[in-house]
Computed example of a mutant assay.
Amino acid sequence: MKALKFNDVWDVRNIQVPELECIDADDVIVAVEVCGLCGTDVGIITGDYPVAIQGTTLGHESSGTVVKVGQAVTRFKAGDRVVINPTYSCGQCRMCQTGNENHCERKNGTEAGVSYDGTFADQYRAKESSLIHLDDHVSFEEGALTEPLSCTITGVDKLNITHTNIRACVIGAGTMGMLYLWSLHLRGVKAFMVEKNEHRYQFSLNALPEGTRVYRDFSEAMREEYGSDEEKLDLCVDTTGYLAETVFDRLAPGGKLLNVALKDSYAKLDILKIADKSLSVIGSIDSLNNSFERAYATIRDGQIPVGKLVSHTFEFEDYEQAFTMVGCNIQGKTQQPITEPNCKVLLKIPANA
């Protein structure tokens, strides 16, 4: 079978590997149908997020069809359509015992696409407990967005939203930005969006919640939304990591800045303001508190039209073209601006193709 292996920074190859078999009694072998390209994958390939173990198969946003089950598996059988939760937690370590399962101390060697062979491959070896049945009316493509939406729900939970009449914005119109915008919308919060890339901006126009606006510039947005770019915000989600200082200076008392960008960069924040204005600077990553199951239910019930966010689907063999679409030029070993409208880009991975 084929698998997209990470060998080193900018060294990613589609190679043939042996088909998978069940090892433990609760193992399930899934034939991967589609897998989404994530910013984590880009960070691993470019070296901006140096977490992956060399030789690991990349990919973790996926859905597929069960082909084999271990002898103790009772909830799934061959032919079942499933969504794959790639996040492991042992439930026993200190992080798990303090409610931080997304930072489980024992997940090294179990994290799909990072330290455990992921889902840019014909097959993936999952645990029975990490799978959810994919309803017939939900496409494989829609199901593959469960994982990024689960990370979004984790972040929104951390914001502890208690009022809906707040001023809010989301920075970045990539997949995570769009999912945060929709998730806030479901909580009754009307946020505006800022996206400076013209192509991402254009794509977002047809995928926004009703009544939501997107702008190319933060100061312009503040003027248009609130009458002055000196007005203050109550909440900002920054998915890019580039506007932390700018947004921090515009937070109202009690304001919250949520950063979900995996960027190797630094920002200077006024410590006095944090205390004097009761400000919160929050980070968030991965799934937590049943957010994966909640994310799938949100997609299943049509509360967020995730299908609108899928802009491109490439065949597995065209993975380099797919990554170039999101600004990661593997052949040229460089990151480059996005040159056409896109949001979520998927690889189609039919088994034995």
Rank of each mutant, 00 (worst) to 15 (best):
T57G: 03
R75T: 13
G59K: 11
T56M: 14
G64D: 10
G70P: 14
D48V: 06
K77C: 08
A72K: 14
T46S: 15
V42K: 10
G59M: 12
T65R: 13
A52C: 09
G70M: 13
K68W: 05
F76H: 06
T40I: 06
G43W: 01
I53W: 00
H60N: 09
A78G: 12
K77D: 07
G64M: 10
K68N: 03
R75W: 07
S62Q: 06
G43P: 03
T56K: 08
A72Y: 08
V66M: 06
P50F: 01
T56N: 15
T65C: 09
G43T: 06
T56Q: 11
H60I: 10
V73S: 04
G55E: 10
G43V: 09
Q54P: 10
V73L: 02
A52H: 02
T56D: 07
T56Y: 05
A78P: 04
L58F: 03
A52K: 06
T46M: 02
V73Q: 02
S62Y: 03
I45Y: 04
G79C: 12
G70H: 13
Q71N: 11
G64Q: 09
G70K: 13
T74W: 00
T56R: 11
G70A: 14
V42P: 00
G43C: 08
V67A: 07
D41K: 01
T40H: 05
A52Q: 06
D48H: 12
V69T: 15
K77G: 11
T65P: 04
A78H: 06
I44F: 07
Q71V: 12
D80P: 05
G47F: 01
G43R: 04
G64T: 11
T57K: 02
V73R: 00
F76C: 09
V42W: 00
V51F: 00
T57N: 01
T57P: 02
D41W: 01
G47D: 06
V67N: 06
G43A: 07
L58W: 05
V66W: 02
G70I: 15
V51M: 08
I53K: 12
I53G: 00
G64A: 13
D80K: 04
H60S: 06
V42S: 08
K68T: 08
T65L: 08
Y49V: 14
G43S: 07
V42L: 04
A72P: 09
R75A: 15
G59L: 13
T46L: 02
T65I: 15
Y49P: 00
V69F: 03
A52L: 08
F76R: 06
A52Y: 04
K68A: 12
H60D: 10
L58V: 13
I44T: 15
V69P: 03
T74F: 01
F76A: 07
T57W: 00
T74H: 11
V66G: 08
T46R: 01
T56L: 13
D41A: 02
Q71D: 13
A72L: 12
S63L: 10
D41P: 03
V42N: 02
K77I: 13
R75K: 15
A78F: 01
D80E: 05
V51N: 00
